[in-house]
Write a protein that binds this DNA or RNA. Structure first.
Lengths: 119, 119
DNA sequence: ACTTGACCTGGAGCCCACTCCAGGTGTGAC
DNA sequence: GTCACACCTGGAGTGGGCTCCAGGTCAAGT
């Protein structure tokens, strides 16, 4: 099975080297194998998981919650309902976030128009 | 002209007392008058400005940029074009933010559906 | 006269999510 | 063999944005 060097994962995911190590240290990334010389080798699965992490992070999920999600994933298939619940809740928050953003945007646009008229 | 006590502004704006003082200290809130006893009294204008600040904050504008905006406002009417430019730029970022959020949301929904099928 | 409560100050502390650093090791190119 | 380079470790430091604290002042109510 193919594996990736740290640099390759940085390249593929956009996370920094330090961030990858940080995520591993806090338990957001687990089962990272090492070469005989002690260097990390990541799997396709890690890269995919980092895609999910990136998505959750970009949508404002705090690390603590991602950790809970990671634990559910590690705990096995019987946690799937919980994972769905967690994701649904998050999805709702994202929806609310988008709605708020749209609302605030109207305020900004109104402000811009006000200034344009005042110019 | 009517003025507001700190507690009233907290009530009206949702910002905390400490946050109001903090904003004043860093220059995001200026010309706050005091009573003889040294207590703050805010004007309608402050409350409105805090509405703008809240909007910009909620849409992710960093304090440093709000400060620049505040300085433009203080500098007078000849900065209106600059203010519009700043707001337009911000508005574009907010648009991009919404787009990203929507995109990530699709990923989350797909993940949920995947789990639902796997259940 | 006394208590309550809203307010004041300067400065320390906190949380989050990284990010950087010093000092060290192993691998490949020349 | 020596150089650069990618990587390793533990731990300290950073930046943003508040948030809290100790100790004090004043005004109003009882």
């Amino acid at each position: 099975m193919p594996s990736y060097t740290p640099a390759q994962v940085v390249e593929k995911t956009g996370f920094g080297l330090d961030t990858l190590r940080y995520y591993e240290k806090i338990g957001l990334l687990s089962d990272v194998e090492r070469t005989a010389a002690g260097q990390r080798r990541y799997t396709e699965g890690h890269v995919e998981w980092l895609g999910t992490v990136g998505c959750l992070r970009d949508t404002g999920m705090p690390i603590a919650e991602m950790l809970r999600f990671a634990e559910l994933v590690r705990a096995g298939d019987h946690t799937i309902a919980d994972r769905v619940a967690l994701l649904r809740e998050h999805d709702e928050r994202v929806g609310a976030q988008i709605a708020t953003l749209r609302d605030r945007r109207r305020y900004i646009k109104a402000k811009i128009e006000y200034y344009e008229r005042a110019r």
